[in-house]
C-alpha cells in the first residue's frame, strides 16, 4: 500500500518535471528539469526492482548524455525561446482534446489487464550479464558497432574544417 502511494507520488512528480521541461523557455532550465526527471526516474526504477537500470540511468543518461546537452547549450548560447504562441489556435485545442480520450481508453485497458502471476525472484546482476552475452549477444555487438559509427559521424560533422564545401561564403555561390 505504501509502495503504491509512494510510486504514484513519484510518477506525478515525474510528469510535473517533464511538463516543466516542455514549457520552460530557458534552455538550461529545461535541461535541468529533465535531469531532475531522470533522477526521479532512476528512483522509480529502483522501486520497481530494476537496480541495474536505475544505476545506468544516472551514469549514462543523467551523467553523460545530459552533460553533452548542457555543454552544447552553454557553448552555443542557445537563445531563450520566446513562449511559443500567445493565441491558441484550433489545432492546439483539438490536438490536446483528442489525446485525452486516447489516454483514458488505453489506461482503462491497461488497468483491466490481468498481469501474469510469476513467482518473484530477485533478478541479480549475474542473470542480466548471462542473458546479455548469451541470448542478446548479436544485438550487443551491433550496438557497439552503432556506437562506433555514431562516434565517427559526430566527430566528422562537428569537426572545425576550413575547407568545408557546404559553408556559406559571403559573395560566392553556395555549395561549391
Amino acid at each position: 500500500m505504501i509502495m503504491t502511494v509512494t510510486l504514484t507520488i513519484l510518477c506525478l512528480l515525474l510528469i510535473l518535471c517533464f511538463v516543466t521541461t516542455s514549457i520552460i523557455p530557458t534552455p538550461v532550465g529545461a535541461c535541468a528539469s529533465l535531469i531532475g526527471g531522470f533522477l526521479l526516474l532512476s528512483f522509480i526504477y529502483g522501486f520497481l526492482g530494476a537496480h541495474f537500470a536505475a544505476v545506468i540511468q544516472i551514469i549514462v543518461y543523467a551523467g553523460a548524455i545530459m552533460v553533452v546537452f548542457v555543454f552544447v547549450v552553454m557553448l552555443l548560447n542557445v537563445p531563450t525561446q520566446d513562449l511559443p504562441k500567445v493565441k491558441i489556435s484550433l489545432a492546439d485545442i483539438l490536438s490536446i482534446l483528442l489525446s485525452i480520450p486516447v489516454l483514458i481508453l488505453v489506461s482503462i485497458k491497461i488497468l483491466n489487464w490481468q498481469a501474469p502471476m510469476i513467482d518473484s525472484q530477485n533478478v541479480e546482476m549475474k542473470d542480466i550479464a548471462r542473458k546479455m552475452f548469451i541470448d542478446y549477444l548479436w544485438p550487443f555487438e551491433l550496438i557497439s558497432f552503432l556506437l562506433l559509427t555514431a562516434l565517427v559521424a559526430a566527430i566528422t560533422v562537428a569537426h572545425k574544417n576550413k575547407g568545408s564545401r557546404y559553408m556559406l561564403k559571403e559573395g560566392s555561390d553556395h555549395g561549391r
Binding site: 549514462v60 546537452f69 550496438i143 556506437l147 555514431a150 559526430a154
Partner: peptide, 13 residues
Amino acid sequence: MAIAACEAAVGLA
C-alpha cells in the same frame, strides 16, 4: 539508452 546516446551525439553534432 545506447541508441539514445548515439542519437543525441549525432544530433548535437
